[in-house]
Design a protein around this nucleic acid. Structure first.
Lengths: 210, 210
DNA sequence: TAGATTGTTAATCGATTAACAATC
DNA sequence: TAGATTGTTAATCGATTAACAATC
Protein backbone atom coordinates (compact mmCIF):
# COMPACT_ATOMS: atom_id res chain seq x y z
CA UNK A 1 0.00 0.00 0.00
CA UNK A 2 2.41 2.67 -1.10
CA UNK A 3 -0.03 5.05 -2.77
CA UNK A 4 1.47 8.48 -2.42
CA UNK A 5 -0.21 11.77 -1.82
CA UNK A 6 -3.56 10.52 -0.68
CA UNK A 7 -5.20 13.38 1.16
CA UNK A 8 -5.99 13.04 4.83
CA UNK A 9 -9.61 13.78 3.95
CA UNK A 10 -9.76 10.50 2.07
CA UNK A 11 -7.90 8.59 4.79
CA UNK A 12 -10.28 9.91 7.41
CA UNK A 13 -13.21 8.45 5.51
CA UNK A 14 -11.75 4.97 5.17
CA UNK A 15 -12.55 3.78 8.72
CA UNK A 16 -16.17 4.73 8.17
CA UNK A 17 -16.36 2.78 4.91
CA UNK A 18 -14.72 -0.10 6.74
CA UNK A 19 -17.35 -0.04 9.44
CA UNK A 20 -20.29 0.03 7.04
CA UNK A 21 -18.80 -2.70 4.87
CA UNK A 22 -18.37 -4.93 7.89
CA UNK A 23 -22.04 -4.53 8.71
CA UNK A 24 -23.05 -5.19 5.13
CA UNK A 25 -20.94 -8.31 4.74
CA UNK A 26 -21.97 -9.60 8.19
CA UNK A 27 -25.61 -9.14 7.26
CA UNK A 28 -25.01 -11.39 4.27
CA UNK A 29 -24.92 -8.74 1.55
CA UNK A 30 -22.49 -9.89 -1.12
CA UNK A 31 -22.37 -6.93 -3.46
CA UNK A 32 -23.15 -3.26 -3.33
CA UNK A 33 -23.12 -0.43 -5.83
CA UNK A 34 -21.70 2.98 -5.09
CA UNK A 35 -25.22 4.34 -5.44
CA UNK A 36 -26.69 2.04 -2.81
CA UNK A 37 -23.77 2.65 -0.45
CA UNK A 38 -24.24 6.35 -1.10
CA UNK A 39 -27.81 6.18 0.18
CA UNK A 40 -26.83 4.23 3.28
CA UNK A 41 -23.83 6.36 4.21
CA UNK A 42 -25.23 9.71 3.09
CA UNK A 43 -22.29 10.68 0.93
CA UNK A 44 -22.25 11.01 -2.86
CA UNK A 45 -21.67 7.96 -5.03
CA UNK A 46 -19.11 10.04 -6.86
CA UNK A 47 -17.08 10.50 -3.72
CA UNK A 48 -17.23 6.82 -2.93
CA UNK A 49 -15.90 5.87 -6.36
CA UNK A 50 -13.23 8.56 -6.27
CA UNK A 51 -12.12 7.51 -2.82
CA UNK A 52 -11.76 3.84 -3.72
CA UNK A 53 -10.04 4.62 -6.99
CA UNK A 54 -7.25 6.36 -5.16
CA UNK A 55 -6.10 2.86 -4.34
CA UNK A 56 -6.94 1.08 -7.58
CA UNK A 57 -10.08 -0.48 -8.97
CA UNK A 58 -11.93 -2.58 -6.44
CA UNK A 59 -15.19 -2.80 -8.34
CA UNK A 60 -16.52 -4.17 -11.56
CA UNK A 61 -18.56 -2.32 -14.15
CA UNK A 62 -22.16 -3.39 -14.22
CA UNK A 63 -21.80 -5.24 -10.94
CA UNK A 64 -20.58 -2.93 -8.23
CA UNK A 65 -18.32 -3.92 -5.37
CA UNK A 66 -18.00 -7.24 -3.60
CA UNK A 67 -18.50 -6.32 0.05
CA UNK A 68 -16.13 -8.88 1.55
CA UNK A 69 -13.37 -8.15 -0.95
CA UNK A 70 -13.72 -4.40 -0.54
CA UNK A 71 -13.78 -4.75 3.24
CA UNK A 72 -10.57 -6.79 3.19
CA UNK A 73 -8.85 -4.39 0.79
CA UNK A 74 -9.69 -1.35 2.90
CA UNK A 75 -8.42 -3.25 5.91
CA UNK A 76 -5.11 -3.80 4.13
CA UNK A 77 -4.89 -0.16 3.09
CA UNK A 78 -5.39 0.80 6.74
CA UNK A 79 -2.66 -1.64 7.77
CA UNK A 80 -5.09 -3.74 9.79
CA UNK A 81 -3.52 -6.92 8.46
CA UNK A 82 -0.59 -6.13 10.76
CA UNK A 83 -0.30 -6.70 14.47
CA UNK A 84 0.58 -3.56 16.44
CA UNK A 85 2.22 -3.62 19.83
CA UNK A 86 1.44 -0.67 22.05
CA UNK A 87 2.73 0.59 25.36
CA UNK A 88 0.72 2.82 27.62
CA UNK A 89 2.46 5.78 29.19
CA UNK A 90 0.31 7.06 32.04
CA UNK A 91 -1.78 4.42 33.80
CA UNK A 92 -4.38 6.81 35.15
CA UNK A 93 -8.12 6.51 34.67
CA UNK A 94 -8.14 7.14 30.95
CA UNK A 95 -5.05 5.05 30.29
CA UNK A 96 -6.42 2.08 32.20
CA UNK A 97 -9.74 2.39 30.39
CA UNK A 98 -7.94 2.20 27.06
CA UNK A 99 -5.97 -0.88 28.09
CA UNK A 100 -9.14 -2.61 29.25
CA UNK A 101 -11.01 -1.83 26.07
CA UNK A 102 -10.97 -5.18 24.31
CA UNK A 103 -12.01 -4.05 20.85
CA UNK A 104 -8.56 -2.71 20.14
CA UNK A 105 -7.05 -6.12 20.74
CA UNK A 106 -9.51 -7.69 18.35
CA UNK A 107 -8.30 -5.28 15.67
CA UNK A 108 -4.69 -6.26 16.29
CA UNK A 109 -3.77 -3.35 18.55
CA UNK A 110 -2.26 -5.02 21.55
CA UNK A 111 -1.04 -3.41 24.77
CA UNK A 112 2.13 -5.13 25.96
CA UNK A 113 3.18 -2.93 28.87
CA UNK A 114 2.12 0.13 30.85
CA UNK A 115 4.25 2.78 32.57
CA UNK A 116 3.54 5.26 35.30
CA UNK A 117 5.32 7.45 37.84
CA UNK A 118 3.12 6.34 40.74
CA UNK A 119 5.02 3.70 42.80
CA UNK A 120 1.76 2.30 44.12
CA UNK A 121 1.00 1.00 40.65
CA UNK A 122 4.32 -0.77 40.13
CA UNK A 123 4.03 -4.54 39.96
CA UNK A 124 0.31 -4.24 39.55
CA UNK A 125 -1.37 -5.17 36.30
CA UNK A 126 -4.19 -3.58 34.39
CA UNK A 127 -6.21 -5.81 32.09
CA UNK A 128 -3.41 -8.36 32.32
CA UNK A 129 -0.76 -5.82 31.34
CA UNK A 130 2.05 -5.09 33.83
CA UNK A 131 2.66 -1.56 35.08
CA UNK A 132 6.28 -0.49 35.42
CA UNK A 133 8.09 2.68 36.48
CA UNK A 134 8.34 5.19 33.70
CA UNK A 135 12.10 5.23 34.17
CA UNK A 136 12.12 1.84 32.47
CA UNK A 137 10.19 3.03 29.41
CA UNK A 138 13.24 3.76 27.29
CA UNK A 139 14.96 0.44 27.92
CA UNK A 140 11.70 -1.44 27.40
CA UNK A 141 11.16 0.23 24.04
CA UNK A 142 14.74 -0.50 23.04
CA UNK A 143 14.52 -4.14 23.98
CA UNK A 144 11.04 -5.02 22.81
CA UNK A 145 8.97 -4.73 19.71
CA UNK A 146 6.89 -1.61 20.27
CA UNK A 147 5.09 0.13 17.42
CA UNK A 148 2.86 2.63 19.14
CA UNK A 149 3.26 4.68 22.31
CA UNK A 150 -0.04 5.76 23.85
CA UNK A 151 0.42 8.98 25.79
CA UNK A 152 -2.14 9.51 28.55
CA UNK A 153 -0.11 11.77 30.79
CA UNK A 154 -0.51 15.48 31.59
CA UNK A 155 0.75 17.84 28.94
CA UNK A 156 3.50 19.10 31.20
CA UNK A 157 5.22 15.73 30.84
CA UNK A 158 4.03 14.63 27.42
CA UNK A 159 6.46 16.68 25.36
CA UNK A 160 9.54 15.49 27.21
CA UNK A 161 8.54 11.83 27.07
CA UNK A 162 7.73 12.07 23.38
CA UNK A 163 11.06 13.69 22.58
CA UNK A 164 12.95 11.11 24.60
CA UNK A 165 11.66 8.46 22.22
CA UNK A 166 12.47 10.12 18.90
CA UNK A 167 15.59 8.04 18.33
CA UNK A 168 13.94 4.70 19.03
CA UNK A 169 12.24 2.44 16.53
CA UNK A 170 8.72 3.33 17.57
CA UNK A 171 6.53 4.26 14.65
CA UNK A 172 3.82 6.38 16.16
CA UNK A 173 2.42 8.20 19.14
CA UNK A 174 -1.26 8.11 19.96
CA UNK A 175 -1.45 11.34 21.87
CA UNK A 176 -4.19 12.07 24.40
CA UNK A 177 -2.29 14.94 26.02
CA UNK A 178 -3.65 18.37 25.21
CA UNK A 179 -0.58 19.54 23.38
CA UNK A 180 0.84 19.60 19.85
CA UNK A 181 3.80 17.28 19.58
CA UNK A 182 6.44 18.19 17.04
CA UNK A 183 8.29 15.05 16.13
CA UNK A 184 10.50 13.91 13.28
CA UNK A 185 8.58 12.67 10.25
CA UNK A 186 9.35 9.02 10.85
CA UNK A 187 7.14 9.15 13.93
CA UNK A 188 3.47 9.55 13.17
CA UNK A 189 1.33 11.47 15.61
CA UNK A 190 -2.41 10.99 15.96
CA UNK A 191 -4.06 13.30 18.45
CA UNK A 192 -7.17 12.65 20.48
CA UNK A 193 -7.95 16.01 21.99
CA UNK A 194 -11.07 15.48 24.05
CA UNK A 195 -11.17 19.09 25.18
CA UNK A 196 -11.19 20.27 21.57
CA UNK A 197 -13.99 17.88 20.82
CA UNK A 198 -16.07 19.25 23.70
CA UNK A 199 -15.41 22.78 22.51
CA UNK A 200 -16.66 22.00 19.01
CA UNK A 201 -19.73 20.51 20.64
CA UNK A 202 -20.17 23.63 22.70
CA UNK A 203 -19.86 25.86 19.63
CA UNK A 204 -22.51 23.88 17.82
CA UNK A 205 -24.84 24.08 20.81
CA UNK A 206 -24.57 27.85 20.96
CA UNK A 207 -24.13 28.80 17.32
CA UNK A 208 -27.78 29.62 16.86
CA UNK A 209 -28.04 31.89 19.85
CA UNK A 210 -28.53 35.54 19.30
CA UNK B 1 -22.47 34.51 18.50
CA UNK B 2 -24.91 33.94 15.70
CA UNK B 3 -22.49 33.99 12.80
CA UNK B 4 -24.01 31.77 10.16
CA UNK B 5 -22.36 29.45 7.75
CA UNK B 6 -18.97 29.23 9.37
CA UNK B 7 -17.34 26.11 8.00
CA UNK B 8 -16.51 23.25 10.33
CA UNK B 9 -12.90 23.59 9.19
CA UNK B 10 -12.76 26.99 10.86
CA UNK B 11 -14.57 25.80 13.97
CA UNK B 12 -12.16 22.91 14.32
CA UNK B 13 -9.25 25.31 14.42
CA UNK B 14 -10.70 27.54 17.13
CA UNK B 15 -9.85 25.27 20.09
CA UNK B 16 -6.24 25.20 18.94
CA UNK B 17 -6.07 29.00 18.74
CA UNK B 18 -7.68 29.10 22.15
CA UNK B 19 -5.02 26.81 23.58
CA UNK B 20 -2.11 28.79 22.15
CA UNK B 21 -3.60 32.11 23.21
CA UNK B 22 -3.98 30.86 26.75
CA UNK B 23 -0.32 29.97 26.86
CA UNK B 24 0.66 33.32 25.36
CA UNK B 25 -1.43 35.37 27.77
CA UNK B 26 -0.37 33.25 30.74
CA UNK B 27 3.26 33.78 29.81
CA UNK B 28 2.64 37.52 30.01
CA UNK B 29 2.52 38.30 26.29
CA UNK B 30 0.07 41.12 25.76
CA UNK B 31 -0.08 41.40 22.01
CA UNK B 32 0.67 39.23 19.04
CA UNK B 33 0.60 39.73 15.29
CA UNK B 34 -0.84 37.19 12.89
CA UNK B 35 2.68 36.73 11.54
CA UNK B 36 4.17 35.85 14.89
CA UNK B 37 1.28 33.54 15.75
CA UNK B 38 1.73 32.01 12.32
CA UNK B 39 5.31 31.07 13.14
CA UNK B 40 4.37 29.57 16.49
CA UNK B 41 1.37 27.60 15.28
CA UNK B 42 2.75 26.66 11.86
CA UNK B 43 -0.23 27.89 9.90
CA UNK B 44 -0.32 30.84 7.49
CA UNK B 45 -0.89 34.36 8.80
CA UNK B 46 -3.50 34.69 6.11
CA UNK B 47 -5.49 31.82 7.49
CA UNK B 48 -5.32 33.23 10.99
CA UNK B 49 -6.67 36.60 9.87
CA UNK B 50 -9.35 35.00 7.72
CA UNK B 51 -10.44 32.72 10.55
CA UNK B 52 -10.77 35.52 13.08
CA UNK B 53 -12.53 37.79 10.63
CA UNK B 54 -15.30 35.28 10.26
CA UNK B 55 -16.44 36.55 13.63
CA UNK B 56 -15.60 40.23 13.30
CA UNK B 57 -12.48 42.30 13.75
CA UNK B 58 -10.58 41.37 16.87
CA UNK B 59 -7.35 43.11 15.95
CA UNK B 60 -6.05 46.56 15.28
CA UNK B 61 -4.06 47.66 12.26
CA UNK B 62 -0.44 48.32 13.04
CA UNK B 63 -0.76 46.66 16.45
CA UNK B 64 -1.95 43.10 16.06
CA UNK B 65 -4.18 41.27 18.51
CA UNK B 66 -4.46 41.65 22.24
CA UNK B 67 -3.93 38.13 23.53
CA UNK B 68 -6.28 38.32 26.50
CA UNK B 69 -9.05 39.97 24.53
CA UNK B 70 -8.71 37.52 21.65
CA UNK B 71 -8.63 34.59 24.06
CA UNK B 72 -11.81 35.74 25.74
CA UNK B 73 -13.57 36.38 22.46
CA UNK B 74 -12.74 32.94 21.10
CA UNK B 75 -13.97 31.49 24.38
CA UNK B 76 -17.28 33.26 23.88
CA UNK B 77 -17.54 32.08 20.29
CA UNK B 78 -17.03 28.54 21.54
CA UNK B 79 -19.71 29.03 24.16
CA UNK B 80 -17.25 28.55 27.00
CA UNK B 81 -18.81 31.41 28.92
CA UNK B 82 -21.72 29.06 29.59
CA UNK B 83 -21.97 26.28 32.15
CA UNK B 84 -22.85 22.89 30.66
CA UNK B 85 -24.45 20.11 32.63
CA UNK B 86 -23.66 16.62 31.42
CA UNK B 87 -24.92 13.16 32.25
CA UNK B 88 -22.90 10.06 31.65
CA UNK B 89 -24.63 7.08 30.10
CA UNK B 90 -22.47 4.02 30.61
CA UNK B 91 -20.33 4.05 33.76
CA UNK B 92 -17.72 1.61 32.50
CA UNK B 93 -13.99 2.20 32.44
CA UNK B 94 -14.02 4.92 29.83
CA UNK B 95 -17.09 6.63 31.23
CA UNK B 96 -15.68 6.71 34.74
CA UNK B 97 -12.40 8.08 33.42
CA UNK B 98 -14.24 10.93 31.74
CA UNK B 99 -16.17 11.79 34.90
CA UNK B 100 -12.98 11.80 36.93
CA UNK B 101 -11.16 14.01 34.49
CA UNK B 102 -11.19 17.34 36.27
CA UNK B 103 -10.20 19.58 33.40
CA UNK B 104 -13.68 19.39 31.92
CA UNK B 105 -15.16 20.79 35.08
CA UNK B 106 -12.71 23.68 35.03
CA UNK B 107 -13.96 24.54 31.54
CA UNK B 108 -17.56 24.57 32.74
CA UNK B 109 -18.48 21.05 31.63
CA UNK B 110 -19.94 19.49 34.70
CA UNK B 111 -21.14 15.92 35.20
CA UNK B 112 -24.28 15.88 37.30
CA UNK B 113 -25.30 12.24 37.15
CA UNK B 114 -24.24 8.88 35.71
CA UNK B 115 -26.36 5.96 34.51
CA UNK B 116 -25.64 2.29 33.97
CA UNK B 117 -27.39 -1.04 33.61
CA UNK B 118 -25.15 -2.80 36.12
CA UNK B 119 -27.03 -3.03 39.49
CA UNK B 120 -23.74 -3.34 41.36
CA UNK B 121 -23.01 0.28 40.48
CA UNK B 122 -26.33 1.68 41.69
CA UNK B 123 -26.04 3.95 44.71
CA UNK B 124 -22.31 4.14 44.21
CA UNK B 125 -20.67 7.35 43.12
CA UNK B 126 -17.86 8.07 40.70
CA UNK B 127 -15.87 11.23 41.22
CA UNK B 128 -18.64 12.46 43.49
CA UNK B 129 -21.32 11.82 40.88
CA UNK B 130 -24.10 9.34 41.69
CA UNK B 131 -24.73 6.32 39.49
CA UNK B 132 -28.35 5.41 38.83
CA UNK B 133 -30.15 2.75 36.83
CA UNK B 134 -30.46 3.64 33.20
CA UNK B 135 -34.21 3.20 33.47
CA UNK B 136 -34.23 6.51 35.32
CA UNK B 137 -32.35 8.38 32.59
CA UNK B 138 -35.41 9.71 30.83
CA UNK B 139 -37.10 11.04 33.95
CA UNK B 140 -33.84 12.55 35.17
CA UNK B 141 -33.36 14.40 31.91
CA UNK B 142 -36.95 15.61 32.00
CA UNK B 143 -36.70 16.88 35.55
CA UNK B 144 -33.22 18.35 35.58
CA UNK B 145 -31.19 20.78 33.57
CA UNK B 146 -29.14 18.58 31.27
CA UNK B 147 -27.37 19.99 28.22
CA UNK B 148 -25.14 17.17 27.07
CA UNK B 149 -25.50 13.38 27.18
CA UNK B 150 -22.20 11.53 27.10
CA UNK B 151 -22.65 8.12 25.52
CA UNK B 152 -20.08 5.55 26.58
CA UNK B 153 -22.09 2.41 25.99
CA UNK B 154 -21.70 -0.33 23.37
CA UNK B 155 -23.01 0.53 19.95
CA UNK B 156 -25.75 -2.07 20.20
CA UNK B 157 -27.43 0.12 22.82
CA UNK B 158 -26.28 3.57 21.79
CA UNK B 159 -28.73 4.12 18.97
CA UNK B 160 -31.78 3.22 21.03
CA UNK B 161 -30.77 5.40 23.97
CA UNK B 162 -30.01 8.33 21.68
CA UNK B 163 -33.35 8.06 19.94
CA UNK B 164 -35.21 7.81 23.24
CA UNK B 165 -33.93 11.29 24.08
CA UNK B 166 -34.79 13.10 20.86
CA UNK B 167 -37.91 14.70 22.29
CA UNK B 168 -36.23 16.01 25.44
CA UNK B 169 -34.56 19.35 25.91
CA UNK B 170 -31.01 18.03 25.68
CA UNK B 171 -28.88 19.96 23.26
CA UNK B 172 -26.14 17.54 22.31
CA UNK B 173 -24.72 14.06 22.46
CA UNK B 174 -21.03 13.44 22.94
CA UNK B 175 -20.85 10.04 21.35
CA UNK B 176 -18.08 7.56 22.12
CA UNK B 177 -19.98 4.60 20.68
CA UNK B 178 -18.66 3.34 17.37
CA UNK B 179 -21.75 4.19 15.41
CA UNK B 180 -23.21 7.06 13.40
CA UNK B 181 -26.16 8.57 15.20
CA UNK B 182 -28.83 10.14 13.06
CA UNK B 183 -30.68 12.64 15.17
CA UNK B 184 -32.91 15.63 14.54
CA UNK B 185 -31.03 18.85 13.85
CA UNK B 186 -31.78 20.40 17.21
CA UNK B 187 -29.52 17.80 18.81
CA UNK B 188 -25.86 18.24 17.99
CA UNK B 189 -23.69 15.15 17.76
CA UNK B 190 -19.95 15.15 18.31
CA UNK B 191 -18.29 11.81 17.76
CA UNK B 192 -15.15 10.50 19.41
CA UNK B 193 -14.38 7.38 17.46
CA UNK B 194 -11.22 5.98 19.00
CA UNK B 195 -11.12 3.02 16.65
CA UNK B 196 -11.17 5.35 13.66
CA UNK B 197 -8.36 7.34 15.19
CA UNK B 198 -6.25 4.21 15.64
CA UNK B 199 -6.94 3.21 12.06
CA UNK B 200 -5.74 6.56 10.74
CA UNK B 201 -2.63 6.06 12.83
CA UNK B 202 -2.19 2.59 11.40
CA UNK B 203 -2.56 3.90 7.85
CA UNK B 204 0.10 6.52 8.43
CA UNK B 205 2.46 3.95 9.91
CA UNK B 206 2.15 1.70 6.88
CA UNK B 207 1.66 4.19 4.06
CA UNK B 208 5.32 4.14 3.07
CA UNK B 209 5.58 0.40 2.86
CA UNK B 210 6.06 -1.16 -0.48
C1' DT C 1 -26.77 -8.05 -26.58
C1' DA C 2 -28.74 -4.59 -23.27
C1' DG C 3 -28.50 -2.79 -18.82
C1' DA C 4 -25.93 -1.53 -15.11
C1' DT C 5 -22.31 0.53 -12.94
C1' DT C 6 -17.55 1.41 -12.61
C1' DG C 7 -13.34 4.23 -13.58
C1' DT C 8 -12.01 8.58 -14.95
C1' DT C 9 -12.15 13.13 -16.97
C1' DA C 10 -14.21 17.62 -16.69
C1' DA C 11 -16.79 21.15 -14.11
C1' DT C 12 -17.89 23.14 -9.90
C1' DC C 13 -17.44 24.44 -5.46
C1' DG C 14 -15.17 25.77 -1.30
C1' DA C 15 -11.10 26.59 1.31
C1' DT C 16 -6.56 28.43 1.48
C1' DT C 17 -3.15 31.68 0.24
C1' DA C 18 -1.55 36.00 -1.70
C1' DA C 19 -1.87 40.76 -2.27
C1' DC C 20 -2.82 45.24 -0.96
C1' DA C 21 -5.62 49.17 0.43
C1' DA C 22 -7.28 50.85 4.83
C1' DT C 23 -6.00 52.49 9.15
C1' DC C 24 -4.07 52.42 13.67
C1' DT D 1 4.08 61.23 9.80
C1' DA D 2 6.05 56.55 8.79
C1' DG D 3 5.84 51.85 9.85
C1' DA D 4 3.27 48.05 10.95
C1' DT D 5 -0.33 45.08 10.53
C1' DT D 6 -5.06 44.29 10.04
C1' DG D 7 -9.30 43.48 7.23
C1' DT D 8 -10.70 42.20 2.88
C1' DT D 9 -10.63 41.33 -2.00
C1' DA D 10 -8.59 38.59 -5.61
C1' DA D 11 -6.01 34.48 -7.11
C1' DT D 12 -4.89 29.90 -6.42
C1' DC D 13 -5.30 25.49 -5.00
C1' DG D 14 -7.51 21.27 -3.76
C1' DA D 15 -11.55 18.62 -2.92
C1' DT D 16 -16.11 17.41 -4.30
C1' DT D 17 -19.54 16.57 -7.64
C1' DA D 18 -21.21 15.73 -12.28
C1' DA D 19 -20.90 13.56 -16.55
C1' DC D 20 -19.96 9.97 -19.54
C1' DA D 21 -17.16 6.64 -22.03
C1' DA D 22 -15.46 2.07 -20.96
C1' DT D 23 -16.70 -2.43 -19.87
C1' DC D 24 -18.54 -6.18 -17.31
Amino acid sequence: MAEKGISQAVISRLPRYYRYLKELKDSGKERISSQELSRIMKVTASQIRQDFNNFGGFGQQGYGYNTTYLYDEIGKILGLDHQHNMVLVGAGNLGQALVKYLKFKKSGFNFVCAFDINPQLFNQTVGGVPIRPISQLRSYVDENDVDIVVLTIPKSEAREIAHSLTDTKIKAIWNFAHIDLELPPHIQVENVHLQDSLMRLSYNIHKNEN
